[in-house]
């Protein structure tokens, strides 16, 4: 809520807490942010469906690169972290700080697993020849998924700080629950964005034998 303690008791005009409202506004803005990044990636996929050329001059296809099993796993992990986040928020609303800590620790670990998968993925793709510098695909892919990864990393950092803050005993009551809920809103949003990225950047490449952009190799050739 606001910086003024008087406002703690004073009801807001809408009945929505200031902190919650401002997080919703930020998320609205962030929608446009990711919308622009995803559009950039999709526009370039449509323009250059052929993938990229690696350092040896070989034409490479995006399906050669992706490990859909790994990405599906990390997507699942991120989804489950959202589930734990919901439990953490609920625990805080009930004033169960210990349950909150357990669940939020789970979110942090799952978030770190997701980030680890992304680091592995980036390294793997880099060694397969996709760099930020050698193609438009590399630029859009790394910047889009990297920006999302940055969001996750900020979320993890935030939750780690909340986790340790809960030991000071100051995270409690309505304000404490609100602080956790606002962090939860952010976390769920970042999760939802990943569902969209996973669909638009990864899954559609596997639609039909040639991918949605009509570029991929038929499964048999692979």
């Amino acid at each position: 809520m606001s910086d003024t303690a008087a406002a703690h008791e004073a009801p807001t005009s809408t009945g929505i807490d200031h902190k919650k409202l401002i997080m919703w506004l930020f998320l609205a803005s962030d929608c446009m942010f990711f919308g622009t990044l995803i559009s950039t990636h999709l526009l370039y996929r449509k323009l250059f469906p052929a993938g990229f050329t690696d350092a040896e001059g070989h034409q490479r296809f995006i399906q050669d690169l992706f490990s859909i099993e790994l990405t599906s796993f990390s997507t699942f992990i991120l989804l489950m972290s959202s589930f734990l986040m919901a439990l953490a928020v609920s625990a805080m609303h009930k004033g169960q700080v210990k349950s909150f800590r357990r669940n939020v620790l789970g979110v942090i670990v799952f978030g770190l697993i997701f980030l680890g998968c992304q680091v592995f993925e980036f390294t793997h793709f880099y060694h397969k020849g996709l760099t930020i510098q050698n193609s438009v695909l590399g630029s859009t892919f790394y910047v889009l998924t990297g920006t999302h990864g940055t969001h996750v990393a900020i979320g993890v950092l935030w939750l780690i700080l909340l986790y340790f803050y809960s030991f000071t005993g100051k995270l409690g009551g309505h304000m404490g629950a609100l602080d956790v809920e606002v962090a939860g809103l952010y976390w769920h949003f970042v999760d939802i964005v990943w569902i969209i990225i996973f669909t638009a950047v990864y899954l559609v490449e596997y639609l039909g034998p040639y991918g949605i952009w009509g570029s991929g190799l038929p499964a048999v050739v692979k």
């Binding site: 250059f48 930020i132 510098q133 438009v136 590399g138 630029s139 910047v143």
Partner: peptide, 13 residues
């Protein structure tokens, strides 16, 4: 960082 978003030499638009 040498990305190609708007680099015409690499197909950027």
């Amino acid at each position: 960082f040498g990305a190609n978003f708007f680099n015409p030499s690499a197909g950027g638009q």
